[in-house]
Write a protein that binds this DNA or RNA. Structure first.
Lengths: 218, 218
DNA sequence: GTCTATAAATGGATAGAC
DNA sequence: GTCTATCCATTTATAGAC
């Protein structure tokens, strides 16, 4: 059923023409597809090899075993999907506007396919791969909280907000935005696009947040 | 390694002595253990049979196939762990006190082993079993929101609270309580007991909630 | 470095006896 | 209703050639 035309490929691409580490990139891409789509248990190395147009022996030569390949691919994907979080610039007029912009980009990221699949993997396999779970938490949730907390602390010092515990307030805001949206998405109960829901959730969360923490002195 | 002394058992328990549906109960219990502990893919029917001291053929006779057994066991477990949510009585003095009591029991439930494992299963396999995911959401998150929303609506009408959208406010409160606690627990990054964290999270959420929604007229 | 071929084990599912 | 025994597909992993 799953025939691979490896003979034809081999004749068309002589060894010298191939770049160094020729199959590694293909294997990594294939593994990302397979594991993120099917999970760790259901993702087979046969499927990875077929998708990468490589042999299983090559996979073992480079990654040792299934665990090694899984760790490599998930670790790289974690960093990859988390990078947008580190590019948070705030040059906005009012605090609510800044919260809205930040919130929308954060929530959109959270609901996009990559992070959603990583979340599923971490929830399902976190106990089996503690280092990955740790890495995911440090690069994802923790960064989001810290980034927002810094912003809140700043604007609390300047009198725009009235916040005792910026970290906690940041957590509250991020959690409130999620509401039912994220939980339903990860369980497969809702499908994209989420644009409209994202805007509504962020707006509601901003309103509630300002009601609680908006400076009364003005 | 996994030898089963089925011969001895058979001679000691004659057919008439066994209750009706003799092996079903044992199989169900074993399946709950195996699937909740290992997930759907990694949970094998061999393991279920061994734990139930039954044969795989008996499993197939009763449940048809692996999917059938999985659905049966998860559906029953969903109802089982969700029942405490439906027993919410509120006869407390102040609104903050009621929120605290409700919040603590809710958050403790959310972090206890059963619900935690069901959550992992639903996140990992939700797309594969939409009916189960639906059932879980209706019996879990939805009930929690509805219960709290009814309480909030009541106390908003009586002037204790100042809330436009009770459902949304309920969602906010439930999400705020969770904070980092739930996400870290499901990913295996923290272990019980959570008692101290639960109290702290609930107290913080109640404080923030009252700050936003506490009636100003009094 | 990469392949083909194959070993070794596991796991879902069934046939047939009792 | 339950068991033993078995089938067959899949899957992890390796040996050895090129």
């Amino acid at each position: 059923m799953k025939s691979r035309a490896s003979k034809a490929v081999k004749s068309k691409l002589p060894p010298t023409r191939r770049r160094r580490e020729p199959r590694i990139r293909a294997i990594l891409e294939a593994a990302e597809q397979v594991f993120l789509e099917n999970g760790y248990e259901a993702g087979s190395l046969d499927a990875v090899a077929a998708r990468a147009n490589a042999s299983k022996a090559t996979i073992y030569a480079h990654f040792g075993n299934k665990v090694g390949l899984f760790k490599a691919i998930v670790a790289s994907k974690i960093v990859q999907v988390a990078t947008p979080l580190r590019e948070a610039d705030e040059k906005h007029v009012s605090v609510p506007d800044a919260l809205t912009v930040f919130g929308q980009s954060f929530l959109s990221l959270l609901l996009s396919p990559g992070p959603l699949k990583i979340y599923r993997l971490m929830v399902a396999q976190g106990e089996q791969f503690p280092e990955l779970a740790q890495m995911w938490f440090e690069n994802g949730p923790k960064v989001a909280i810290a980034t927002l907390a810094a912003f809140l602390k700043e604007h609390s010092a300047s009198g725009d907000l009235d916040i005792d515990n910026p970290e906690q307030a940041a957590e509250f805001f991020l959690m409130m935005m999620r509401g039912r949206l994220h939980i339903r998405a990860v369980a497969g109960l809702s499908k994209p696009p989420y644009d409209k829901d994202v805007k509504a959730c962020v707006a509601a969360a901003v309103k509630m947040f300002m009601r609680a923490y908006g400076s009364k002195i003005k």
